[in-house]
Design a protein around this nucleic acid. Structure first.
Lengths: 198, 198, 198, 198
DNA sequence: AATGAATGAGAGTTCATTCAT
DNA sequence: TATGAATGAACTCTCATTCAT
């Protein structure tokens, strides 16, 4: 009679690493501690992951995918462009503030040397629908003709900044304030045509 | 005839750490390597810095100050609000793209556990003039009444995103594109009154 | 087929430390040398002991206990007081000269800053029967009414001095000389009543 | 205008080492700390002492000599043997309790590997008069015919034990108690002839 | 004589990883 | 599959000692 099923253990290891690395950082999170927190033996980790970097990398991929799914939730192609924009924006924002630990991990490690460029690129697939949505927005004159990749990073940055501010705890971003913030983001990319929205 | 003056050595250590930590990350930058790169003995580092954390912390403070000075360059109180906005924006952007290593370090460590909250707070003084400028902007109706701290982080994020894109090398942000990007940032915070600028 | 059982390794580490520290002293006994002498890897020491101080402390406790057991050997409550005194005295003396390395360690570290007051106190339990024996001796008029703790230290000192002299090798303390030495010690604490013994 | 004269500095270094090594032990007393405590530069120590071991050794010799002088104070050859015995005993005891730091140092280092056998032997000269006194005591039938060196160590041990007990602070050894303790020591070495003294 | 910055070997300790069970 | 004792390279940091000034 074991406490963990096989995939339970893998999940427990990932969760333990997520929790510990977010709290203490990479170099203050020894594998032995991950093992203890996950309730498995140190050696067991190496049945599921080749090494520490692989574990981090897999955790990153896992969370990136989770984020991609959240981003696309309730996508509705029949909505007007600004409303679709708003939906994606709020989807991402909601994912961040409802998953603060995951958010903090992604914030800290997306640009760190622990995640290889290859790993980063592999996980872009989950965002393709939104990138296409933005490309269409430029093509159809809803969005300014800024370089697409810049546009993506810029908008992503807006949501991140808002989520960090919200989670800092001084002032919640909800209701009217949330709408103002989305409008602020939208105003930075929309063309003249859409000045009336929101 | 010595090769180093006293402050030369301290500076050499800071530079070596900046270079190595940006390339390899904190935990892949042993003090022995810093010593070699700086051309000093391992023990010498400990004459100037109490420990590795202190060294990182002092490096952070040093660069934050340098960034603060660059931000305020050519400040001109007689200019119209949007032009002052544009000056600060471009000052910061220029500092980032002209000091890519410093930029990468600040990007990577500003929010990391290696920098204590105290160290972070201590270094906010250098930015006070710009924060006041933004607070005035809201008070005088040039900027939207968003929470001041959010506004600060949001605008800072715009410059960071632009600098990262520029440095990625695919497409330079200069000339008209730079103006478009500044306008995008400005449009996200300005009130209706200023729709005509840029 | 392994060379060491689990407790073998712990014991090997304790023995190695005992040998080396007695020969060279604390600060000339690096952990790496202890590891080599014990036939284990450096890291292995830290499975059994939290740090060097802990290792010394545990060694001390171990030997104090061993000494306590030797001291009480063949205790015989039906013997006359002076003969019980003589038994304890010779028990301790024999333990010292038969375990010269252990003796030297205890000599060198019992009063050193390496052993915490707490550790020292914790190990007094092994000597309680003898301390009671001495307290009874005063109460019953066999021993002079000197402060108990002084009496204990004084007699302990006699045995230590004799053992050191014996081990120095110039002249063995056995036979008649041993009896003279025990008598000397006894004469320093006995009351008039017992002037005839030995 | 200097603060220290030449020999002042040497003395300051010896005093600083004595204080620090007694408080913290050898391996917790770095030369840099000795320099600070003595109010001199680290390098200056090496003008007066070849190295750390030499410094310890010289400190040891210095204190042994001081102890020898104290031991022989008020020596009076015309006194009866037991009174001369008592004088030496109390001289040594007084030196110990009036110089507790020096006493602690001598206690801790006399038997440590830091003091070479050579250094130890060199300093025996200061005690020659007392050793002769004891040898005479045996020859003349005042003292038991125990090995001379054993007698010396034994009596020395008595004084040390008493001084340690006194300095521990629980109970002072003065007045009648001091007399009892000297008598205890005397009784352990005197022949029958002297049973009436004290 | 005196300084103290600089040295660099070596200390204690950690921890990713292995492997016999 | 799971264990966890064992490994040993590599880490941060200390400190006795030197030497240019």
């Amino acid at each position: 009679m074991t406490i963990h099923s096989q995939s339970d253990k893998k999940q427990a290891i990932l969760s333990a690493m997520l929790k510990l690395i977010t709290e203490n950082g990479f170099h203050a999170t020894p594998m032995s501690l991950v093992a203890t927190e996950a309730g498995v033996a140190a050696g067991t980790i190496y049945h599921y992951f080749a090494n520490k970097d692989q574990l981090i990398s897999e955790l990153y991929s896992h969370l990136k995918q989770k984020m991609g799914i959240a981003l696309l939730q309730d996508e509705n192609l029949s909505l007007a462009y600004p409303y679709r924009f708003s939906l994606f924006w709020k989807n991402l924002f909601t994912f961040f503030i409802e998953n603060p630990v995951e958010f903090k991990f992604l914030e800290q490690y997306s640009n760190s040397p622990f995640i290889s460029t290859e790993t980063r690129d592999d996980n872009q697939v989950f965002y393709k629908p939104v990138i296409d949505f933005l490309a269409d927005g430029i093509a159809e004159g809803h969005l300014r003709p800024l370089p697409l990749e810049f546009l993506v990073e810029s908008l992503f940055g807006h949501v991140v900044t808002a989520a960090k501010f919200h989670l800092a705890g001084t002032q919640e971003i909800t209701g009217d304030l949330l709408d103002s913030v989305v409008k602020s983001s939208w105003d930075s990319v929309r063309t003249e045509e859409f000045s009336g929205y929101f």
